[in-house]
């Protein structure tokens, strides 16, 4: 594996733009994520964070620009969720990663079922692997949660754990978490952050989207700040303290206010 350092990036986005009709949601986005880097993506509501995620995961194509995943150029005309999965991009959403009324083992393999001939499910195998992920990858023990439990019985943090465990099982190069802690209590947030640490330990890359500054700061190696469809700052953790980052964001939003008033 004698690749150049650039090619070992998990992700490289070049001049990505996205228009919804005449509305520009993303403008000239250039972003790189290292192969074992956790990038905290910060920005106000409507900054374009989720739009960027949806482009990366193949929900819709960008208007223009290029995407490279683990050095491979993505064919954006034939890109969709399944292709994104094949490229190793997995996404964990705030609330739409799991089917609430479905049992856990189905949630691990939905869209990527292990099948017998004629499309029938290999339930035994799926349950075995699901159990393995729960015990070894995400460390669910006891608590009466089994692969046959329904998602509706899990706490918010546990649900995100299942989604993250699933992403790790499918050998994601890049795991994107889009505001995974929005509706959670502090204790549940801690659980989710613990799962994110496991992504780092497993040598994978991660984009963590949040507007809760404290937890982004703790787990991220780098911060990227977006505003109104543009990346306005990109800095390594060692360049800035939490306090300074907070102040920067505060000042920045004041700055924007002034601009609006002009």
């Amino acid at each position: 594996m004698a690749e150049s350092p650039v090619e070992r990036n998990a992700l490289r986005m070049v001049n990505i733009e996205k228009y919804f009709g005449l509305v520009c949601a993303l403008r000239k986005i250039n972003l790189e994520v290292g192969s074992n880097e956790i990038v905290g993506l910060i920005g106000d509501n409507g900054a374009g964070k989720s739009t960027m995620v949806k482009i990366l995961t193949g929900v819709f194509p960008p208007t223009s620009g290029e995407i490279y995943i683990a050095g491979n150029k993505v064919d954006l005309r034939n890109y969709n969720v399944k292709r994104a999965h094949e490229h190793g991009v997995e996404t964990v959403y705030q609330d739409k990663s799991l089917g609430e009324k479905q049992v856990l083992w189905r949630n691990f393999f939905i869209g990527r079922e292990i099948t017998l001939p004629f499309g029938f499910l290999n339930v035994k195998k799926e349950k075995e692997i699901a159990n393995e992920i729960m015990v070894n990858t995400i460390g669910f023990r006891g608590k009466g949660i089994t692969v046959d439990s329904k998602v509706s019985k899990l706490s918010g943090g546990e649900r995100q754990g299942v989604a993250i465990g699933r992403a790790m099982h499918f050998e994601a190069e890049l795991i994107i978490l889009d505001e995974p802690t929005v509706a959670l209590s502090l204790k549940e947030v801690a659980k989710v952050l613990n799962f994110v640490h496991k992504i780092k330990e497993a040598g994978k890359a991660c984009i963590y989207i949040s507007h809760a500054m404290a937890d982004v700061y703790e787990i991220s190696d780098r911060f990227v700040i977006m505003d109104r469809g543009e990346i306005v700052a990109d800095m390594a953790k060692k360049e800035i303290s939490l306090k300074a980052l907070d102040e920067f964001l505060l000042e920045y939003s004041h700055g924007m206010k002034d601009k609006v008033e002009l």
Partner: peptide, 28 residues
């Protein structure tokens, strides 16, 4: 019964009925 409970098609039906957005982002 086998189609609904033991086949890909049935699983897709359940997830779509549960939450079509989840189904979509999981590649169905």
């Amino acid at each position: 019964w086998f189609i609904l409970n033991r086949h890909k098609f049935g699983e897709e039906i359940m997830f779509i009925g549960d939450n079509a957005n989840v189904a979509r982002v999981m590649g169905i």
